[in-house]
């Protein structure tokens, strides 16, 4: 039923999707974490209380989250070209994916930090811990399971976004599904890509849950 050529195409497309999702998630986490930390700690009554900064950041994050991905992708093409020299292909698709995921990650991380008992942070303050110490030795370890789940959610989201990125030549499973499955009426390929996407999402979620579970010591 599946010929070797198709199989190799599916394989390449899967690898492309994994690259986009993996790189996008990693970069978005690296760039979104500081933003999330800033968002959480500048909030009223928090360790770096800065109402103006907090509101400004919150506004930027909300704007970032409200731009539809497909529009964002097209809108930042010049930026993508500047960064990777092209706006087509898997590497190029990583740029809009990352940009779209940063505010998402930041908001999730902010939420994860909000779950920490303020009393624990107060206890650290009472011991003379400085804000950086509180962030790295208290907030991040305490919120780690929630942070892992936030990253997992981001990765799952990026699987969906990466399929959209396929529409403008990003490669990957979405691209394959559109070009072969949709435009050439190959229902079998459409089905196969969807099955792979479903398995991918399941796998990512299970892995994330497992890691979070292992780190979870709270009641």
């Amino acid at each position: 039923m599946i010929n070797p050529v198709m199989l190799s195409m599916l394989w390449t497309a899967t690898l492309d999707t994994l690259t986009m999702v993996g790189l996008g998630t990693a970069l978005a986490t690296v760039l979104g974490l500081p933003l999330g930390i800033l968002l959480a700690t500048t909030a009223p009554k928090h360790i770096l209380e800065q109402p103006l900064v907090h509101r400004a950041l919150g506004g930027i994050v909300n704007i970032g989250r409200s731009v539809p991905f497909i529009i964002l992708m097209v809108a930042i093409i010049p930026f993508t070209r500047l960064l990777v020299g092209s706006s087509i292909g898997t590497t190029a698709a990583v740029v809009p994916l990352t940009v779209a995921a940063i505010p998402f990650v930041a908001r999730l991380i902010d939420g994860a930090f909000k779950e920490i008992d303020p009393g624990v942070i107060e206890a650290a303050e009472s011991m003379g811990a400085s804000p950086p110490v509180i962030i790295f030795k208290v907030m991040i370890p305490e919120a780690l399971p929630a942070l892992i789940l936030a990253v997992t959610l981001t990765a799952v989201n990026l699987v969906g976004y990466s399929a959209m990125a396929g529409a403008i030549g990003g490669g990957g499973l979405g691209d394959l599904a559109i070009r072969y499955g949709y435009q050439r009426f190959r229902g079998d390929i459409m089905l196969q890509t969807v099955v792979i996407l479903v398995l991918l999402v399941q796998g990512i979620q299970m892995l994330g849950d497992k890691i979070a579970q292992r780190l979870y010591h709270r009641q």
Binding site: G119, V120, A123, S126, M127, G128, V138, L215, H217, Q219
Partner: peptide, 20 residues
Amino acid sequence: LRQARKETGMIFQHFNLLSS
């Protein structure tokens, strides 16, 4: 102030231990 706090201990109603 951080130095002064290191010379003062404090305990809390809800213990405030680090769960991790």
